[in-house]
Design a protein around this nucleic acid. Structure first.
Lengths: 157, 157
DNA sequence: GGGTACTGGTTGCTTTTGTAACCAACTGTC
DNA sequence: GACAGTTGGTTACAAAAGCAACCAGTACCC
């Protein structure tokens, strides 16, 4: 059989395995040592950056759906790493922020994560890092276009 | 709080969401229309390329663990897309290959997947595609090194 | 102001994924 | 040729992800 397709050069496969390996490696820092899940980690990072947000906004900023956000927030509230106060404009929603304990935990984890990231990116020149993110941006953009017009990829109409 | 970390520039996050979006987009081809899971798809591709393999070899070539392979193979055997014959050298193991039906199915899916991939890579120059794969290679290599020596990333001893 | 449609968020359930235990067969050693 | 240790593969169980229904509150509209 004539096989044009090999996994080693197939972007979905390569991207998938890379993402999984990265995730496994990184999660050793915050999962094993601090008991934080990936979803919870994303919520922490986002609230550290934006200080106070609705759950919905957290979801938009982290590309998580509302169920994931809801469960991550619940877990963090259980451990009192987050504070929740009602939103005046909409009594269904609540504003989330890091509690002092949450901020403290985050400040312990962040430098380790940054060090880990530096270590991962060490073999790449600064220009290569730029390129990498630019390529990811392009691919995500293209994916968004493709999902708008699913079958506009062949030559014929 | 001084936040050095933002998800939009955090490689694990970007890589993860990109991989997920790619996977969702691609799986529309083989999952929705042919009822093939990602794991099953990988097995098909690998057997199309290597014609006859042990489950263990499939696992090595696809970066899947043996449980995943076992389940994918079981699913494909149920639908008679695979043939299994005993291995003379080791009666625990079995040699796997595509059945005629499996090869036929693969040949129907492959061109669509290739077209989809072309569409995804369309915005990238050939040189950029090269670069992308080279960067992925570098990162995977670095991850392998890092897992060997977990904490050799800071300047001091 | 009472209906309808929508939205923020949670809960319950099903499907998928990962982990660990397991079985049968192979290898090596004595 | 018995035994300990290993390996190919499957099965059983637990954690996690995805999906749909749901509740309470909001917005619109007449």
């Amino acid at each position: 059989m004539q096989h044009a397709l090999s996994l080693t050069r197939f972007l979905p496969y390569r991207c998938n395995t890379l993402a999984r390996k990265i995730s496994v490696s990184l999660s050793r820092i915050y999962t094993e040592r601090f008991g934080i899940s990936v979803a919870e980690w994303r919520v922490l990072v986002t609230l550290a950056e934006y200080s106070e947000l609705l759950a919905k906004q957290v979801g938009e900023l982290t590309s998580m759906d509302k169920v994931q956000v809801s469960r991550a927030v619940a877990g963090l509230l259980d451990r009192e790493l987050l504070l929740r106060r009602p939103c005046e404009r909409d009594s269904r929603a609540a504003l989330l922020r890091l509690s002092p304990a949450g901020a403290g935990l985050y400040q312990r984890i962040e430098p380790e994560v940054l060090a880990w990231e530096q270590s991962l990116l060490a073999p790449l020149e600064p220009a290569e890092r730029q390129t990498l993110f630019a390529l990811i941006d392009k691919l995500e953009l293209q994916l968004a276009c493709m999902s708008d017009q699913p079958a506009a990829n062949q030559g014929s109409t």
